[in-house]
């Protein structure tokens, strides 16, 4: 978080650089079946973020040493395409991608009924084709829809959204400038049917009251995104 207090990101009427109010989401659209060769797939366009997710499996888990006798292994990979960012992203090993893959897997493992498929593996591939801000949230949301689309049993879908703070104002769903110059970022993974959490990160500086506001924004936004996810699944493939 930069914390550049002198960059004016929100005016006195609470209107943000892209014209949104503090609690507004960027436009979100979701489609299923966008990768025909996959067992399940989804595309999420969120602002100018563009993510696709593919699911393969359940399949026999290789290599054997990562196999689990009592459940399936969720093999999640989050990756950014080389042209997805302003400066080209070098392909290959990347600590940030590894961390996001891991927390995404941790979040999804909390809902996928892995006990149904002992010794198997379910592959979840998340590719960010165009990144604006909040790609981990977009990726996790896309992965949830792709898993549901593949017919993988799960107790709920994970909806992921982030809120943060710019110029001392708490706002929902940071865009790129706000993410660069903002003072805090709170991404959460929410189970919409119970309001429980499976993913939580935060960095920056928030007072207790600001934190509560950001939390509430996320909860509200999650319900909106959840409806778009459900509509995408019920509306049939692209």
């Amino acid at each position: 978080m930069g914390g550049y207090g002198d960059v004016q990101m929100i005016d006195e009427n609470g209107i943000r650089v892209d014209g949104r109010g503090p609690g507004d989401l960027r436009p979100v659209s979701i489609e299923t079946g966008v990768i025909p060769v996959a067992d399940g797939s989804a595309r999420v366009i969120w602002g100018t973020n563009h993510a696709v997710a593919a699911v393969y499996g359940p399949m026999e888990c290789h290599p054997r040493k990562i196999q689990r006798q009592d459940r399936a292994v969720l093999d999640v990979r989050y990756n950014m395409a080389p042209f997805s960012t302003t400066d080209r992203m070098r392909p290959g090993f990347n600590r940030r991608s590894r961390e996001i893959s891991k927390v995404t897997a941790d979040a999804l493992e909390s809902v996928v009924l892995l006990e149904m498929y002992p010794r198997c593996k379910v592959r979840v591939e998340i590719e960010i084709l165009c990144a604006e801000a909040g790609t981990r949230c977009v990726g996790l949301t896309a992965a949830s829809v792709a898993l549901a689309h593949a017919g993988i049993p799960m107790t709920d879908m994970v909806v992921s959204v982030a809120s943060g703070k710019i110029n001392d104002v708490v706002v929902c769903d940071l865009n790129k400038e706000e993410d660069n110059y903002g003072e805090a970022d709170l991404p959460m993974g929410i189970l919409p049917n119970s309001g429980e959490l499976v993913f939580l990160q935060m960095d920056g500086d928030l007072s207790q009251a600001e934190f509560q506001q950001a939390w509430d924004y996320n909860m509200e936004a999650a319900m909106v995104v959840h409806q778009i996810m459900v509509d995408a699944l019920k509306g049939g493939d692209a």
């Binding site: 809902v111 898993l147 549901a148 799960m154 107790t155 709920d156 879908m157 049917n193 459900v230 019920k234």
Partner: peptide
């Protein structure tokens, strides 16, 4: 009825 995972 068509449902998504998690629906009551």
């Amino acid at each position: 009825l068509l449902v998504a995972p998690g629906e009551d």
